[in-house]
Design a binder for these strands. Sequence first.
RNA 1: GCCGGUGUGGCGAAAUGGCAGACGCACAGGACUUAAAAUCCUGGGACCUUAAAAAGUCGUGUGGGUUCGAGUCCCACCACCGGCACCA
Length: 901
Amino acid sequence: MSHGRRSYPFDLIEGKWQRLWEARQSFRAFNPGDDVPADHPFARRHGLNGKVSADRLPPKYYILDMFPYPSGAGLHVGHPEGFTATDILARYRRACGFNVLHPMGWDAFGLPAEQYAVKTGQHPRVTTEANISTFTRQIRSLGFSYDWTRELSTTDVGYLKWTQWIFLKLYHSWFNPVTQRAEPVDTIPFPKDCTTEAARRQHVEGLRLAYVSEAPVNWCPELGTVLANEEVVDGKSEVGGFPVVRRPMRQWMLRITAYAERLLTDLDAIQWSDSLKEMQRNWIGRSEGAEVEFVVAGSSEKVRVFTTRPDTLFGATYLVLSPEHRLVSRLTTDEAQKAVADYQAFAAAKSDLERAELAREKTGVFTGAMAINPVNQQKIPIWIADYVLASYGSGAIMAVPAHDTRDFEFAQKFHLPVVQVVQPAEKDLNWQGYTGPGTAVNSGFLDGAATAKAKELMTAWLENNGHGRRMVNYKLRDWLFSRQRYWGEPFPIIWRQTPDGVRCHEALPESSLPVLPPNLTDYKPTASGEPPLARAEEWVRQPDGSVRETNTMPQWAGSCWYYLRYLDAANHARFTGEEAERYWMGGKSPGVDLYIGGAEHAVLHLLYARFWHKALYDLGYVSCSEPFQKLVNQGLILGEDGQKMSKSRGNVVNPDEVLAEYGADAFRLYEMFMGPLEMVKPWNTKGVEGVYRFLGRVWRLFVDEASETAFQQAETLAPAGDKGGLLALVRLNNSIRDVPPAPAQSKVLHACIKKVTEDLEALRFNTAISALMVFTNESMTWDIKPVSIMRDFLVLLQPFAPHLAEELWEKLPAPTAAHSMDLPYTPWPVYDPALLVESEVEIPVQVNGKLRAVIRVPVGIPPQQLQDLAMAHPGLQPFIQGKSVKKIIILPGKLVNVVVA
RNA sequence: GCCGGUGUGGCGAAAUGGCAGACGCACAGGACUUAAAAUCCUGGGACCUUAAAAAGUCGUGUGGGUUCGAGUCCCACCACCGGCACCA
């Protein structure tokens, strides 16, 4: 012990209770239909025995952590922050009488294990299992009340089978725009001209929720795989920071865009932080506007553009297509051929990173073609420029340089006309580049209309004259769902040639699940760039001549539904049990009641999981449409230097070391005492010592000093090994007596109950802990400590420091039946407001809002008497004498404020 | 540039519009001890007076405003953190 003497024998206490909880299965959560053993503390608390139906179980409370990726580095202090918060609340809800579901598992597919496999030839499953066992040991050592019988890993064969099963559900479904929900593909209506088998097939492929696309993707050569848009940050891979290039490849996509509107509107109904909801809203990026068709002069081609400002159509002085736009080659005149081709090559050569960095200077070339503005028949030039993105809207814009910053820059550079069509409200404001609302000018039938009205008028005109329509666009892209990796779920898909030579994909039947990855010795992609699975030629080739899909699913697949698997983790027949699903996810408080995790998953995991959940809901597999009712992000924990923890800075705090020195209870307590859960806050080892000292004070509050000395001597002499039994030598302090509490003592306790209860309901762990400290500081001064008071205190302490609380609880005599419960199931105390009433209060007396005196008065003193007492106070006289009193504000029981001239 | 969040002692922080700084850390003084550690007690926003105190003045990023009264509400800024960013 480098920091002085051990305050209390946490090392023996913590091991002892962790073993007891495990042996007693204390935190096992029971499903409807489960056999509840009569001697289980949950059964005793709720009077249950044997098979229980859902209606006999107490109300459920589902509290979930974002399950970790078990990395080789082990747990860091950021993980237990959220885990401790959920554990405290799980224990609190359990004491309040809920049936609490609090599970833990592993998001174990992932790149590090695969990269290690590439380097060493070691199967990723081996590394993954080793890491999981490290994480398990570390998490268990913190004394969390997880139901470990529900532990799962996304890499389990019994788990990935159902991930593949859900993929098949998506594959076999489409989003019906009429009903606004997913339905089986056999409900897809076919247009009249869709007569051939090939045409019908193509029609269905265009609608499936899981489909194959040939579009350009984010290819990361360093990682040897494609990445989703969400995984690319500033043109580099989010993992590793490697360059990413655009490259056309055949890829599996999930049609998340079909759910854009529901993903957006349903945010209103869930309790997430504003910032998180905003991030999702921004990512979905809904914008309303119109699609406008421009006829190309001297051609039958039409260019469709999307605009949010149809009111400015009269000011559209040119069109811009993205360099990749499919019409470019058809529009370009002979004279412009070379310039256009050169520019396309120039734009294609730019990586996303360069596009982002070189973004400011506008570039582009004229195609030689002209379009006709439908509203005034003017001929306007068609340009291509890479400031127009192929992937948004129709990949083409109408440029209104007078009222769009980008168009204005471009027009200036290339000397294109700028025509004002909006007049700002402030007359002298420069209209050039003015993007705000105003009044339409130079706009024919729109003139004089305010922007909002002008938008409506123009949209109606476009629709009535066949030149366009109202349209909503989203930034959200479909989810690129395949990866060129080994360590992921294989797709339950095969490819075969149709008689007419077309290569078609086909779903494997459910009976063929799980599709397991073949064993390999080399985990690299093939020389030709095919995924590693292509190396297993026998696995790929099917007896009937078809071949397996060799891509695998991304890491996000497994985390999209793990919270559903926890409900019934051992179910072999179904992805989760129907009755269990209804009990835990349905009813009056649907979904996960509280979900805590890091903000880094704001747009990846949380958006993907909501999407899958909604699809499963539409198909009738789950009972609610939003999976996570309330969600809280824990704030980042910084190093002692106030910087982000990182190996290179050398400021990483290892939980194992903190645990060895101060114990799990102190560690848990400190993680919560640092500050509000959601705030970013720096680690401070001295702070751990502070809460550790607090736990030592609690220990000494309860135990007899002489017996502790005897215990310490026995411990020193005892042979190494399990010394937990020696704790019995520590006896209760004889100041703890079975006597009725004095009113002042009850008051201290009940103030503590009130504060801790209210703070837990509001997730204010730091102030709840300070309330426990206040109680301890007070009760230390008592000569006689009533047992009933000390018991209730331990019930309050239990969620925070469960090991210490259990050890002390065991030493206290149990006077009533309620108190003979196991501590985790002992009912949470309820405070009595009557006990908190004071007989006298201190009233601040102010003059003109400044504190000048404090008077002690009986509670309930009539206002007039309060005023008289205040006015007579000598401290006040210098400030009121010789001045006229204009007003006296009296808040009975609160304050007096004298207003003088 | 846009969106969201945060600015309070030496530090982490706390405060339904009503006594700013609870609780903890660090620090200082004291008790216990041969001594140290541990523990317990006491004291700490700044300034100005003073032998000491009392009293007083100022003080929650900056500048305004509302109010009898503002850390808290409103307006305009500044700084830092997070997200998005040529999304038409």
